[in-house]
């Protein structure tokens, strides 16, 4: 087994053109992802957290090569796949699978669930005929579904069961990495717990790595090993889960944490630092640090110069001009 990270992303950029006018000319671009780098080790969960429009879902689609990156490198198990054409990419797809947010639209309504789950096996020629049926039945059992449900169609399953189908499908070809884009946010709380537990069990059993995309910090804290906080196409802080929750350094991370609700009425009395204003449009991001328009600590430098992502302590990366020098305790940091 190679020691290379299962996924490494270097300077990833994805710009979507904005077309306008009668002739549909390019009048601008949405900088959905604007120079993002990270890596995921075998068996690790990297959480990508951020608000809508921060580019987290776009990163998921780009690393899956469902959309082409504008610039940057994507390395799957050490191999550069960023410029591969669809045909050449095909062979690499076995190693990277995906689970989608909406279990209602992620399954073709007109195919039986068994066929859907077995499709990747069939595509990669890993099983056929009776063996395919057996493997699919095993997958159904593994994700907690009755194998006799193979003949049912997607609409005959509940939301949580559909998400299990999605997981079974992703699992079928034994991938190294699963990109999970908001896999539990459409589910009810009690079902969400079932799916999160299943994901963790599978990770421990198969040594899977997850790129886990979510807006929910509580879910992130539960499932991730490391977390990257994104704001308007850039990573503003990337560190271990513990460091993020207990010693976060970026003002935006602080804003997210203090705005998040928790099922504990006693927390209500704490001083909430609520950032004001809306997230600016990714088509017209502010110059300098994207967060400076809402940041209570912004200084002149923040308005003109984008801060680079710098490792201030081992494994703790922050992109902030007001980061502490030498990695000491930050004046802004508060525990939640």
């Amino acid at each position: 087994m190679s020691t290379a990270p299962v996924l490494e992303v270097q300077g990833l950029v994805k710009h979507f053109p904005i077309l306008g006018g009668l002739l549909q000319r390019r009048v601008g671009e949405v900088r959905a992802v604007d120079g993002v780098s990270f890596s995921i080790a075998r068996g690790e969960t990297l959480g990508l957290v951020g608000e809508s429009g921060c580019g987290k879902s776009t990163i998921g689609k780009v690393v899956l090569k469902l959309i082409e990156p504008t610039a940057g490198r994507i390395l799957l198990g050490g191999e550069d796949v960023s410029s591969l054409k669809p045909g050449a990419m095909w062979a690499h797809r076995r190693r990277i699978q995906t689970i989608f947010q909406d279990p209602y639209s992620a399954l073709n309504p007109r195919l039986p669930s068994g066929t859907l789950v077995g499709e990747p096996l069939e595509n990669f020629g890993l099983a056929r005929g009776a063996e395919l049926g057996e493997r699919v039945a095993k997958l159904f059992e593994r994700v907690g579904l009755r194998p006799d449900a193979m003949r049912k169609f997607a609409h005959e399953f509940s939301g949580g069961q559909r998400q299990r189908l999605g997981i079974a499908k992703a699992l079928s070809v034994n991938p190294d990495l699963i990109v999970a884009d908001e896999p539990v946010s459409a589910l009810d709380v009690s079902v969400q717990a079932q799916v999160l537990n299943l994901l963790i069990d599978l990770q421990e059993e198969y040594g899977l790595a997850y790129l886990f995309i979510s807006h929910d910090l509580a879910v992130m804290r539960h499932i991730s090993h490391r977390i990257a906080v994104m704001y308007l196409g850039r990573i503003v802080e990337l560190t271990t889960k513990r460091a993020l929750f207990e010693g976060h350094l970026h003002p935006y991370t602080e804003a997210l944490l203090s705005a998040a609700t928790a099922p504990d009425p006693a927390r209500r009395k704490r001083r909430r630092r609520i950032v004001q204003g809306d997230v600016p449009s990714p088509a017209k991001p502010p110059p300098g640090c994207h967060f400076h328009t809402r940041c209570p600590y912004a200084i002149a430098e923040c308005r003109t110069l984008a801060p680079p992502l710098i490792e201030v302590a081992p494994g703790h990366h922050v992109a902030c001009h007001r980061r502490p020098v030498g990695g000491g305790p930050h004046p802004l940091s508060t525990t939640v």
Binding site: I96, Q97, T98, F100, N108, R110, E119, A170
Partner: peptide, 25 residues
């Protein structure tokens, strides 16, 4: 639709994608 992206990610090639996922719908 996400199920098309899901099929592509699962290694389904164009012809099969059209025949099995697009056409019936």
């Amino acid at each position: 639709q996400p199920y098309i992206e899901s099929a592509i990610a699962g290694g389904t090639k164009n012809a099969k994608l059209l025949w099995r996922h697009v056409l019936p719908n």
